[in-house]
Design a protein around this nucleic acid. Structure first.
Lengths: 156, 156
DNA sequence: CGGATATAGTCAAGGACATTGACTATTATA
DNA sequence: TATAATAGTCAATGTCCTTGACTATATCCG
């Protein structure tokens, strides 16, 4: 016990490290399953499109980036076969971006990997503590944003 | 209760949102105190240099980036007056990077802000839950890295 | 000892990924 | 129906990181 007094590890650092750990492990395992071209933002987009298709602007708002950035991301996702652009029925300016079968398969793979990772985490704490972690983080984020989960903005 | 069954919010998303929330609030408050030029990586560097000076390579390893990237960051931090480069006593190739008085003041300000933010978080959960959060995150990260906290790599 | 090799730091070029700005086509408004 | 707002794209730029190349100094080892 040299000097435990110095400085507790900043919570921000712990959050960053835990996040990176999760994301890095996810992408390692995805690559092993044949999804080597997946970028972190893909998941957020596909999760939104799983329920129903959306426009480029929808996705820009979802991610909290400009529509130009969203457009480029969709380019990449479309090249990878995860989404498809189609003409929009009601609005000739807009395009409908829809998830593809491959996109849905990716989501299923991601969810399986996340389940595995969360089990691993629960093994070093406990099922209850992991539940509390999830609940508390959600509460904290929602309170700050008036009960709604905000856009993601994965990086910074 | 429409469809609660759909999909639980991924833990990764909660971690990312909580992290951003903390970092964004920190920088807003720092700017209000006259530290508008502070970048997220500053804190990690200053925290390491608070105990003792280090070299550029030390900082590159700390951040998990190349020494070129570290060098540029140090340029910025030196321009801001938070660190100072000095010739290294023992090694004429190396330079000693030391924290300045302004750097120390910034750390004190950061810590005060973090304390305030963690109190705010504890107000929406509880002191005990926040303690558990910190403990569990630390455990999870340490277990994955053999009992040691790894480098930061803030973004990605 | 002294030549091969490793290391600290920097400069330069390029890449990844975002931004702002400008533009077209279409839709909504007044 | 003129005017303003909106969806999408292209181009240029900015930030921050990387790889590659280089100099100066330190260390290793035959």
């Amino acid at each position: 016990m040299k000097r435990e007094r110095a400085s507790p590890i900043p919570l921000a650092r712990l959050l960053a490290l835990a996040y990176r750990q999760l994301i890095d492990a996810l992408h390692v395992r995805l690559a092993a399953e044949g999804y080597a071209d997946v970028r972190p933002a893909f998941g957020y987009v596909l999760l939104a499109l799983r329920e129903q298709p959306g426009t480029g602007v929808d996705i820009a708002l979802l991610l909290g980036v400009t529509k130009q950035a969203a457009s480029k991301l969709i380019d990449v996702m479309e090249r990878g076969g995860y989404v498809r652009r189609k003409p929009h029925g009601d609005d000739a300016r807009a395009k409908t971006i829809a998830i593809t079968a491959r996109g849905r398969k990716l989501l299923v793979a991601v969810e399986a990997i996340y389940r595995g990772l969360e089990v691993e985490w629960a093994n070093v704490t406990s099922k209850e503590r992991m539940e509390a972690l999830r609940t508390d983080l959600r509460t904290i984020v929602e309170v700050e944003h008036g009960g709604q989960l905000p856009a993601v903005r994965p990086t910074s």
